[in-house]
Amino acid sequence: MGALLGNVLEHYVMLAGVLFTIGAVGFLVRRNVLVQLMSIELMLNAVNLAFVAYNRVHGDDMNGHMFVFFIIAVAAAEVAVGLAIVLSFYRLTGSVHSDDADALKG
């Protein structure tokens, strides 16, 4: 078991799954918008890890690596837009607390 550690696919997939879950729970439980955005980044990082680990098993086609490249690019763009919206929200409400987003009632 010890020698297998880090040399089998399952370890990486489990780690990715746990990271993804931590991110998802953080997103749902926390109400600080900045922390929620960081939780989404955690989830995307977990996806990256899963892709690279799977690519290691699927041989030399590099499809998984290419996918991760795009995820990283998109994540950066997403954060830029997200923080822009957070700043705009903060200017108007003086808060980054998503419970303060209550002008619209359902």
Binding site: G2, A3, G6, N7, H11, L19, G23, V35
Partner: peptide, 24 residues
């Protein structure tokens, strides 16, 4: 046999998990 590679995996994994827990 536990080699350097296994240690790297453990360290990196703990680093990632601890970081994630601190983040949320």
């Amino acid at each position: 046999m536990i080699g350097a590679g296994n240690v790297l995996f453990v360290i990196a994994g703990i680093l990632a998990l601890a970081g994630a827990l601190i983040t949320v």
